[in-house]
Design a protein around this nucleic acid. Sequence first.
DNA 1: TAAAGAATTGAACTCCGATTCATTGTTTAA
DNA 2: TTAAACAATGAATCGGAGTTCAATTCTTTA
Lengths: 201, 201
Amino acid sequence: MAYRETALVRARKDGVRVAILEAARALVGQGGFRAAQMSAVAAGAGVATGTIYRYFPTQIELFAEVFRDNSQREVEAMLAATVGDGNCALRLNRALAMFISRALRNRRLAYALIAEPVDPQVEAERLRYRQAYALVLEKLVQEGIVSGEFAPQDAHVTATALVGVLGEALLGPLLHSVPTARESVADSIIALCLRAVGAEA
Amino acid sequence: MAYRETALVRARKDGVRVAILEAARALVGQGGFRAAQMSAVAAGAGVATGTIYRYFPTQIELFAEVFRDNSQREVEAMLAATVGDGNCALRLNRALAMFISRALRNRRLAYALIAEPVDPQVEAERLRYRQAYALVLEKLVQEGIVSGEFAPQDAHVTATALVGVLGEALLGPLLHSVPTARESVADSIIALCLRAVGAEA
DNA sequence: TAAAGAATTGAACTCCGATTCATTGTTTAA
DNA sequence: TTAAACAATGAATCGGAGTTCAATTCTTTA
């Protein structure tokens, strides 16, 4: 034998893979998936277009991974907001506020994750992550029902519906920049969600 | 002069235009916009592909018109459910039930209109019609607020959120056929929406 | 019936970004 | 140092659905 991958090479390759992912992520964060053309990603990562294909079989799989990376963070941020002190209503409030504030802070990325037209295979990732958000909320809603804090209801349907509320109600603010109205919109959305679960006013 | 369009020709041309739209609509209703390729639309309408371009400048404009035609019906159906007898809660109930039952009756079409990945220009139509649904609901919510039947709230945000609930909560039932659970899901969705507007239980 | 204008046809073309691959450069172990 | 194995390059290729257009067929009026 005359060649075997060493730790050094392994590390550099890992670095290239990360660079590609980060370039793609940056482009998606600026101009959505539309802007993340393979040539642009390659340029951003400082490699040739062909090199990307040594790390990702297709553009779609690259996009899927970018989608997962970004969405995973959001789910974890929301999950983190649900644990800790407070009754269910308060924790739900925190989780919703966390999602909304993060989305508004990075609107272009949020739009890409929530609503940008994407390839069906990337859309499948979107569906999966919507379920992940819903699962986080469902547990909280279920806990609230058991404790009597929330109205009796189908926690799964409610959680799914809340995900729909977040996506749809944020679409306007995400697309059209209306900075003044944003805080009050956030408050309105949260208030509506709390009524929806039947929390005490 | 030796040629001028007669009423007969006018009528036949109108017929061709309608045939193209209906062929496209049928294909979208069966397999979504994906399935409505120009060659397939032409075949369905009994014309050559080139003929379509004498009636629609691009595929996107054809799709946009199909989208509008179908969505307009839905908006009108929902609107019709909001008028007539009953207090605001009852009429909201009717409107939501109308939307849900129509979507479940024609799931493939509903998916195409609500969530199928489409070209950004068609997506723009989707946004417009979501606003149209929201407007119908907003008026009803506003009326309920004024009458004291619903809680004080931002009617616009609420209406937008309800559109989000309908879309997201129906996605599962639209994609995965679970006939038994559908009615209860519909009931759960409606109950949640009524709580969300702060209607009396 | 003739000639002009219009509509239809569908095979060929276009477009454009994803993907490939022959070539060049790099790393490893003997 | 050398050869084998791998990695990187980026211009050329590919694919496939939307679109075009020269040829044909149809319609109208004189």
